[in-house]
Amino acid sequence: MVKVAIWGSLRTATDGKAEVEADPGTFKQILDQLVVDYPGLEPQIKRGVSFALDGKIYRDAWFTKINDDSELVLMPYMVGG
């Protein structure tokens, strides 16, 4: 299982859990699975999330492969100056 770290404000939607599990697959498959498991995440996922995969930040990228041993951290959608 892939461990997905959930950022602070989303934890109300995951029963307070800082980390949830999902089957390996693409980023999109994991997002879809998270929405099924934790419907409260859906509005934020629709608004847009970035994620950090093994330390690198991605802004969208549905088809990125997330392996069993990957470190996946959901993050707010990034903006900059």
Binding site: A5, A52, V73
Partner: peptide, 9 residues
């Protein structure tokens, strides 16, 4: 492991 979650490369 960074304070905001990801592990640095």
């Amino acid at each position: 492991k960074s304070s905001y979650g990801p592990t640095f490369d």
